[in-house]
Design a protein around this nucleic acid. Structure first.
Lengths: 126, 126
DNA sequence: CTAACTGTACTAATTCGCTTATTACAGTTA
DNA sequence: TAACTGTAATAAGCGAATTAGTACAGTTAG
C-alpha cells in the first residue's frame, strides 16, 4: 500500500503523508478506516517508528486522519481534505503559471498545453 | 538580476540554476552574453564562490551555458534549452492534470483555475 | 489483573547534503 | 607584472532527516 522512493529527494515522512492523502482522496481508504499501526508500518517499510509517527502527526495536523490513543489512527471526515486538495491543486497551477511566465509564454499557449496533456495523459477517464 | 529566497526549501545553488535558466529562456540573456563572474556574483549575493561554482557547473552540464577558462561563462546556443524548458513545463502541466483528474475535476474547471491564477498571480507582465 | 497490543514523548547519536572557508593552481588581458 | 577570469581540493560547520533506545499511557482480549 505504501512504497518508498529513495531516489526522491523529499523526506520519506513526507512521501508517506502524500501517499495516504492520495489513498484517502481517491476513495481507497474511506472514513473511519484504520491506518497501519505506527510500529507495524515501520517494520514493514524497514524504517524507524519515529518517522511514521512524524508522518501521522502531520496527517492529523492537516485533518486527514484522527487519532485515538491506544486504538490507532483512522481516516477523518473528508470535508477538510477536499479543501486541502483544492489548495494543492491551486499550488500545482501556480507552479505551472510561474514557469510559463518565466518562459514568456502566453496564457493561450498554456491552455493549449493543458488541453493536450489532458487528452493524452493517462488519467482517470481513460 | 539574481535574488535569493532563504525561505525556499531548495538549495540556493539550485535557485541560481533555475534563475539563470529563466533569464536565458525569456531572452533577457542572449546567446554569448557573459554571466557574472564566480567571485563577483558570490560577493554580490554574500555567499561562497563555491556555491556559484556549483550552480555554473550544473548550468554547463545542462548545456545552458559554456565556459572559457580565464575569460568567463557565457550563454550557450538555446536549442537544447528550449527543449529542456518545454519538458519542465510539460512536467508541471502533467502534475496539475493528474491531480485534477484524481479529484474528478473537468477540463473546463482547470482552465478556469489557470485563468484565475494567471491574472492574480504576481508574474512577469504586471 | 496481565499480556500484548495501540499512540506519545523525549533525548542522544548518526548520516547526509548544503554551505563556508581557505588555499592553490591555471588561463587571459591590460 | 598585476588583476582579472575559472578550476580543484580539503576541512569544517550546520541543519534537517533519520535512527536507536527508553519510558509512559490508553485499549483490549484472555
Amino acid at each position: 500500500m505504501i512504497v518508498l522512493d529513495y531516489t526522491d529527494r523529499r523526506p520519506i515522512y513526507e512521501q508517506i503523508v502524500e501517499r495516504f492523502q492520495s489513498l484517502v482522496m481517491c476513495g481507497v481508504l474511506e472514513k473511519d478506516a484504520p491506518l497501519p499501526s505506527v510500529r507495524g508500518l515501520a517494520m514493514e517499510l524497514s524504517i524507524n517508528p519515529n518517522t511514521i509517527q512524524r508522518a501521522y502527526a502531520e496527517l492529523e495536523r492537516r485533518g486527514v486522519i484522527y487519532t485515538v490513543k491506544g486504538k490507532g489512527n483512522f481516516v477523518a471526515d473528508q470535508g477538510a481534505l477536499r479543501r486541502l486538495r483544492r489548495e494543492e491543486l491551486l499550488g500545482a497551477a501556480t507552479v505551472l503559471v510561474k514557469k510559463a511566465k518565466e518562459d514568456g509564454l502566453e496564457k493561450q499557449e498554456v491552455a493549449e498545453m493543458i488541453d493536450q496533456v489532458w487528452e493524452q495523459g493517462g488519467g482517470k477517464d481513460d
